Structure formats: C-alpha cells, structure tokens
Simulated assay, not measured.
Amino acid sequence: MHETGKIKVGISIGDLNGIGCEVVLKTFEDERMLDFCTPIIFASNKTISAQKNLLGIEINFHGIHDASKALDGKINVVNVWKDLPTIEFGKNSKEAGSFSIKSLRDAVKALKKGDIDVLVTAPINKNNIQADDFNFPGHTDYLAKELEGESLMFMVTDDLKVGLLTDHVAVKDVAKAITPKLIKEKVKIIEDSLKMDFGIRRPKIAMLGINPHSGDNGVIGKEDDEVMKPVINELFEKGHLVYGPYAADSFFGAESYKNFDAILAAYHDQGLIPFKTMSFGKGVNFTAGLNKVRTSPDHGTAYEIAGKGKADHSSFKEAVFMGIKIFRNRMEYLELTKNPLRKQRIKR
C-alpha cells in the first residue's frame, strides 16, 4: 500500500474484443474511485486511448513502464506492449487472446513482487488464450500455479457466498473427482477464507449433494452416502460447523442458504446457476485460498454487446470494492492473530 493507505489495485485488461476495457474504463470514469484505491491497468497507452475513443469514454490516465512507478490519485497504465493490437469488437481472435495473457502475466508478476496489493481480472476467452506456453482452462488454474496456497473458486456478495468443490470439470467426471481428501481440502479453504477474508469467527457451511435429492438413500446414486456424508460427519465431530449434503434443487428456493455463511456446491453449474440468478451484476468471483487477493466480475467477454457501449460495469466495480475489502480484512486478521489481546475485535 502507499503511505496514504490507498490500496494498489492491479487490473489485467482481459479480451480486447470483449467488454473488458469498457467495464474497466466505465468504473474509473467516476473520479471518486480514486479516493478508494490507486488503479494500475496492465495494457498500453495506445490500447487504452484507442478503446476510450471507440467507446466514447472520457478519462485521463498516466502512462508508466513499471507498476512500482504508479502515482496516487491517477489512473495508471503500465505499458506492457508498444504496438496497438487490432481491435475487432465481438470477434474471437488468437491475437486478442495473446494480449490478454500478456496483461495477466505482467499483472501477476507485479502482484508477486508486491507492486500491487490486489488483482482484479477483466474477462478472458478460455478458447483463444490457449498457447504452447499457456495451457490453462482459465484464470483460477493459472493463479493456483503462480501463487502460494490451494485455490477455491468462491462466488461472493455480502449476503451470498458459494464455493465449488470442482470447478472446470466435465459433468461426467464430477462424481469420481469428489474424494474425501478433496472435500476436506475445500472445506478448510472456505472456512479459513470466511475467517480471514470476511471476519466470520465460527463459519457455518452447507454442502450440496452430488446427485439429485442427494442420492435418495442410494436409489439415484451412492456417492452422497458413501463419500460425502462420512466426511461431513467426521468434520462435524471435530468441531467444524459443516452440514449436509442438502438436495440442491430446493436448497435455494426454500432460502435455506440464509442459514449459512457459505455454501459448497459439488460442481460448477450447481453453484453458479443459482448464484448468478440471484446476484448477477452484483456478484464477484474471488479466488480464495491463495496468498494474494484476486477478484473478477461474474460475467464473461460478452462479445454480443462488445463495442456498443451497453456493458454494465456494476460487477467489475463490485470486484474492485470486494478486493479492497478482502485485502483490508486479511491485513487486520493477520495483525489480530499476531496480537491475541485484540482478537475480540473480530466479528461474530
């Protein structure tokens, strides 16, 4: 952080043919955002100038060659490349993918060095980012390799938090991927994150079943009875407030989620469909479990509206605020754990 206490928020620019630049620029078009943080965008002066002109967004920015040179009170742009990439809104192109990875890599380097405090990633296209030297399904997998810790995809708002046991795994492979070891690992990550990143002293976690009706006592599938229930019982007996497995179809409709601090879904769509239905535009994707803070909006590249000025920047703005909040909570938690006499300040 700067001496002023403002958190340095690094931003990877995402797919240049999508809505990434638009939601970033719209967020910081509001100069009040500079009261909360020092933004550092990883792209180039030419790229940001071209995008703001094409989109009709009025902002001033400060070009730098290294994130460590960022100025407080300015929108800083790190010149990761010199050329002006071809911008073809709505087009899935290999060139756009290569520049999104250049931005991400430079931002992660700065994060590891401590030149930025928080990383907020604009949306990428999981198809066009693939290359000989970059073979990851998405941000989360890459960050898990680059940063210390074990990652968990954690979709969060102030009122709803959904983590995933398995994330980018094909549905046909989900059941065999869920093992007692995996369940214990993910529960620990989500529990630690709720304590450290969200200030919850005794987290209460609900687990959703793998099969419809959590297997209906083995009629629909045996994984819930044979894999999930024994681990949940073991964790509960050890003092962890973990409950379930709950039938996913009625869990959200009956508003059972309100009784828990977080939900751990068995697979991607089981957790993300209800989360996005209830929170779209306000939700944030947070990579929990790592030694650095990374957030992103809850949407993709949205090629269909790219370049039309229609993109809603609410979720990106929330991702910036959530990143700041988590960073501050984490710093306070670490300070409190060093000084046990102040622990009573932790919420709940």
Results as ranks from 00 to 15, higher is better:
300 G>P: 08
329 N>K: 11
338 K>C: 04
287 T>N: 06
295 T>F: 01
189 I>D: 14
13 I>H: 09
314 S>L: 02
181 K>H: 11
310 K>W: 06
274 P>L: 09
223 E>C: 04
273 I>L: 14
168 H>R: 04
347 K>H: 14
192 D>T: 14
119 L>D: 04
296 S>N: 02
87 I>D: 10
49 S>A: 14
274 P>K: 08
230 P>D: 04
187 V>P: 07
1 M>L: 14
275 F>M: 09
193 S>M: 03
100 S>F: 02
277 T>F: 12
146 E>Y: 07
200 I>N: 00
162 V>A: 00
70 A>K: 04
237 E>V: 11
182 L>T: 07
342 R>M: 13
250 S>L: 11
97 G>R: 04
148 E>H: 14
155 M>W: 13
56 G>R: 08
20 G>R: 07
188 K>N: 14
90 G>H: 10
108 V>E: 02
214 S>L: 05
86 T>L: 14
43 A>T: 05
80 V>M: 06
293 V>W: 01
138 G>I: 11
287 T>Y: 03
4 T>S: 15
137 P>I: 05
76 N>H: 10
37 C>L: 01
138 G>M: 12
253 G>T: 13
264 L>G: 00
240 H>F: 15
253 G>A: 11
266 A>P: 00
269 D>N: 08
134 F>A: 05
189 I>H: 11
198 F>P: 02
58 E>V: 08
43 A>M: 05
59 I>S: 01
188 K>D: 15
155 M>D: 07
348 R>H: 08
284 V>N: 00
193 S>K: 10
258 K>W: 00
292 K>C: 07
229 K>Y: 02
